[in-house]
Design a protein around this nucleic acid. Structure first.
Length: 944
RNA sequence: GCUCGAGUGGUGGAAUUGGUAGACACGUUGGACUUAAAAUCCAAUGGACAUUAGUCCGUAUGGGUUCAAGUCCCAUCUCGAGUACCA
């Protein structure tokens, strides 16, 4: 019987599903192990061979842990809200739910054929109301919480109300909006309901705010910072402009420091940690208040607050710069400068983010006509505006120290502003000096002669005395915009009474997405939900707030925005623990048992999106006592991308002739990409197939070399537009799922990017056939495993393999264990091994990698239970220990030859023996023998 | 610019953490089987000289530490990823 992978794979996939082999139990005595993949967005294109790479790796690990006696949770689901389904709906009118459902079916079929050990009984879908009711539930929890800096955690909003009632907000130490005025308890008690709600909103962890947002007109929605790449939208590459809008925000900035600190407690890849660290962007410095000097049109003394990391250079300030959007600009600009400033602001506002980023070299700005007073020297400092100062960072204003900052320097040079030097022995005639380590301050009153560190301390101390500044830590991380003007997302569980947001009672969740006529935003700029024919906010739910039938649009309008893509993915790992629970997010027992993810595998592109937001929500849920661990995933691995190898043909310009790669230098050609599936083993194009592929090639002529058309190759992202997509279905059909699994692992280290090359798959495929043959004999393929006692060689091969494979899996170097299997099978074939003891163990070793063939052989070995349930073979050192060992002999450090000695021979005895050998050699070659030294345990050394 | 990461045959990649570099696989070449092809099996395969033995050179480049360096240290070059007027 031959290795018929198609029958075998279908058979076992069916049996696994029927038996529920991979169902995880929530209560056993076994230790738990939670292996998680980043769940996919089910796109219309289906899976290509790059997608399952991480899933195969996690599957191997999950199966391995199962062999090691763990109760393994290895779930899978779909992140099924998202833009492509919605855009498809806009074009075709087909409901996103329908396309999503179809796509999920394709994904499921493709995933199933690869033979994953997912527990599908726990599947979640973010677009399923049974799931997103909990997304809405968490949103309500966030709304009902504030961040207490004294306790350094999120607490219930009720505690804040109590504080207000008894003491006002005097002693409240919260992370909140910055424009809060002080009020007393009696003030609070006098306020109207609406006034109180407005104040509370400034403290809540999710809040409404008028904010400058990234508006993408083409998509008709706002985008978060991480959804913008190079100034254009990540999806579609549309331009993005800044716009003020009222939006739901998430107070992630409250967690900036803890998100940073938490990175030290988790085993995540360093590059990923680095990019989160950069994203959070902590910088230590001081905030300093400068006061404006009153003039005819601005009689008040306005404070301008700036953030600086160099308070030591405060005596070097020669001007101040405000972002053009800064709110003080309008108030302080003098009549004389009004036109100039206005023109400048209009010019900068017109520039898109992209222009602004593309052109950082041009220096531009305008003088406001006003001056500020230096806190120490009391000198007049001109106040400028310039777009090199960003409204979104710090306070949107800087104290400009041209001698110490290159941007300030360039600005000063450009506008001919003074550049006072405050550094000892430094020439600043050509550029600013910013080397902190070599800094010695001069011309700076009390800071003279101090180093950077000391000067910073002293400057802050002096500023505090004046009450014009203090030490401050600033974070780049901004609060996240949580509203999207889209249809296909979670509706907010929010309605408005008198303009103030109210939460729908939790028992009435989920608030379901309504049917709409159109999926585009309405003409009035309302989000698509404004098109709702009938809202899920039905009579029953409405009566809860009003006890009467209402028209939601006029009486209690609902929030029409939806939540962003990252909402549903920020807690799904917790929901898998108890996915069918419709009373709680999860039961206490489930959380007690599973706690957190032990191994999380997914792409590094989520570093500053999903992975940051998920950590934020986890910390919040932890603060509120809902989850048990502050970090949701102990270990994370980023699998590399599998790239496509595009095939290129060369058309002679202006003709219908195509020239083979080796001959193209003789002609002027242009490159065309063709379907990689038209290329056979080694870059040879199937010319006939190409002619049928696209009409444009019907009449094409080909100039061949050696009767072949050789294509050019280019490694690039696997994508339809390059025709380099390889479909796993085709691979499974031709070589089987086990071959696909092995090959994806064999391709190279898990975390590295590597190009796919179908030609190489024959190697692992022939390994599988060899392995099959190891258990069968003759042409008829009779199962030939016997009860003969294994030879010592058999044992040695087996235990060598056990050791290596176990180490490989623990270190996630799955690529090398594939080689180890190949060596083992080759050795056992040479040894003509038929011993049951050896061959049984081999099946178990291979089973995490190639589960189908393993199950089939296991069954043939006479077992009824699945091989997945069997304990991993135990490594025993004794089979590897030999009676003698070869010692490499080095001569002046150079390896020359080896000598064999008994394993228990003493060091001195070996030295002596080598000496003897030396003498005979020396005699033969007619020279004097050399001195011999044995380096302990390692090597025999001869020194000349 | 800044922060990480990586440079090993024709190709993907190994190398027990300082101890015989190139495992394993692809590809290539030769051979066996075959009317032929496919499939399968066997052999060779870093380079140079020698073709019996062998010798020399080789892990991006230049130095260094060491009996011994792909591995550790310093400098340089190249490529990749992230980030970018962050005060």
């Amino acid at each position: 019987m031959n290795y018929d992978f198609q029958d075998i794979e279908k058979k076992w996939q069916k049996i696994w599903a029927e038996r529920g082999t991979f169902k995880a139990k929530n209560n056993t005595d076994k230790p738990k192990y939670y292996v998680l993949d980043m769940f996919p967005y089910p796109s219309g294109a289906g899976l290509h061979v790059g997608h399952p790479l991480g899933y195969i790796a996690s599957d191997i690990y999950a199966r391995y842990k199962r062999h090691k006696g763990f109760n393994v949770l290895h779930p899978q689901g779909y992140d099924s809200f998202g833009l492509p389904a919605e855009q498809y709906a806009i074009q075709t009118g087909q409901h996103p739910a329908i396309t999503t459902e179809e796509n999920i079916k394709t994904y499921r079929r493709q995933l199933d054929q690869i033979g994953f050990s997912f527990d599908w009984s726990r599947e979640v879908r973010t677009s399923d109301p049974k799931y997103y009711r909990w997304t809405q539930w968490i949103f309500i929890e966030l709304f009902n919480s504030w961040y207490d800096k004294n306790e350094d955690k999120a607490v219930a909003i009720d505690t804040l109300i109590q504080l207000f009632e008894t003491n006002g907000n005097k002693d409240v130490n919260a992370v909140c909006d910055e424009d809060i005025e002080q009020f007393s308890a009696s003030d609070w008690n006098r306020y109207s309901k609406k006034e109180r709600e407005a104040i509370l909103l400034k403290y809540r962890l999710t809040y409404l705010a008028e904010a400058e947002v990234n508006w993408c007109p083409a998509l008709g929605t706002v985008l978060a910072n991480d959804e913008i790449v190079n100034g254009v939208s990540e999806r579609g590459g549309h331009p993005v402009v800044r716009k003020k809008m009222t939006q739901w925000m998430m107070r992630i900035s409250a967690y900036a420091q803890r998100l940073l600190d938490g990175l030290n407690t988790i085993d995540w890849p360093q590059p990923l940690k680095d990019s989160q660290t950069n994203w959070i962007g902590r910088s230590q410095g001081a905030s300093v208040k400068f006061y404006t000097i009153p003039s005819e049109n601005a009689k008040e003394r306005f404070p301008i607050e700036v953030f600086t990391t160099r308070p030591d250079t405060i005596f070097g300030v020669s001007f101040m710069t405000l972002a053009p959007e800064h709110e003080l600009v309008a108030k302080i600009t003098t009549a004389a400068q009004k036109t100039e400033v206005k023109t400048y602001i209009e010019a900068t506002a017109k520039r898109s983010e992209r222009d602004r980023m593309a052109d950082v070299k041009t220096i531009s700005g305008a003088f406001t006509g006003s001056y500020a007073e230096h806190p120490f020297t009391k000198r007049q400092i001109p106040i400028w505006i310039g777009d090199y100062v960003l409204a979104g960072y710090g306070t949107g204003a800087v104290m400009s120290v041209p001698c110490g900052d290159q941007r300030d320097y360039d600005f000063a040079k450009h506008f001919d502003i003074a550049i006072p030097n405050i550094f000892e022995g430094v020439d600043i005639s050509n550029e600013a000096f910013s080397d902190k380590d070599k800094t010695v301050i001069a011309n700076s009153d009390f800071l003279n002669g101090l180093s950077y560190k000391k000067a910073v301390k002293r400057a802050i101390y002096e500023l505090e005395k004046l009450d014009q500044g203090q030490g401050k830590i600033n974070y780049r991380l901004r609060d996240a915009v949580f509203s999207r003007q889209r249809y296909w997302g979670e509706p907010f569980p929010v309605y408005y009474v008198d303009g103030m947001p109210q939460m729908i009672a939790k028992e009435h969740l989920p608030l379901k997405l309504p049917e709409v006529e159109k999926y585009l935003p309405t003409e009035t700029g309302e989000p698509p939900l404004g098109n709702a024919l009938e809202w899920a906010w039905d009579t029953k739910q409405a009566s809860v707030v009003s006890n009467q039938l209402i028209d939601y649009k006029t009486v209690f309008p609902l929030e029409l925005n939806t939540m962003p893509g990252w909402a549903g993915s920020s807690f799904y790992f917790n929901r898998y623990m108890d996915p069918d629970n419709n009373k709680e997010l999860f039961s206490k027992e489930a959380m007690d048992y599973w706690q957190d993810v032990d191994l999380y595998i997914g792409g590094s592109e989520h570093a500053t999106g999903h992975l940051l937001y998920a950590r934020f929500w986890q910390k919040f849920l932890f603060d509120r006592g809902i989850v048990l661990k502050e970090e949701f995933a102990k270990k994370l691995i980023n699998q590399g991308m599998i790239l496509g190898t595009s095939a290129i043909i060369y058309r002679i310009s202006g003709t219908d002739k195509y020239v083979s790669k080796g001959l193209k230098s003789n002609y002027e050609t242009e490159e065309l990409r063709v379907d990689v599936n038209l290329i056979d083993s080694v870059d040879v194009l199937d010319v006939g197939a190409l002619k049928n592929w696209q009409p444009q090639f019907k009449k094409a002529e080909f100039l061949l070399e050696d009767d072949k058309y050789i294509v050019g190759r280019e490694v690039e992202k696997m994508s339809k537009r390059w025709y380099n997509v390889v479909n796993p279905d085709a691979i499974c059909e031709a070589y089987g799922a086990d071959a696909l699994r092995l090959y994806e692992m064999f391709l190279g280290p898990l975390e590295q990017s590597k190009p796919w090359n179908t030609a190489g798959i024959t190697g692992v495929y022939s390994f599988l056939k060899k392995m099959w043959r190891l258990y069968h004999s003759g042409v008829e393929g009779i199962f030939k495993v016997t009860d003969t006692t294994p030879s010592s060689d058999n044992y040695k091969t087996l235990h060598k393999t056990i050791k290596k494979v176990e180490e490989d899996i623990e270190n996630f170097s799955f690529n090398t264990s594939v080689s180890t299997f190949m060596i083992a099978v080759n050795e056992l074939s040479t040894q003509k091994c038929t011993s049951r003891a050896i061959l049984e163990a081999l099946v178990i070793l291979v089973s995490p990698y190639a589960p189908h063939i393993a199950e089939e052989l296991w069954e043939k070995l006479g077992y009824k239970e699945s091989v997945a349930e069997v304990p991993f073979p135990k490594f025993e050192e004794k089979y590897l220990i030999e009676s003698s060992k070869e010692y490499p002999i080095s001569f002046n450090g150079k390896m020359r030859f080896k000598l064999e000695f008994p394993i228990d021979m003493e060091k001195e005895a070996i030295e002596k023996a080598v000496m003897e050998h030396q003498k005979t050699q020396a005699q033969l070659q007619g020279r004097t023998p050399k001195k011999v030294i044995v380096v302990p345990g390692k090597i025999v050394n001869i020194v000349g």
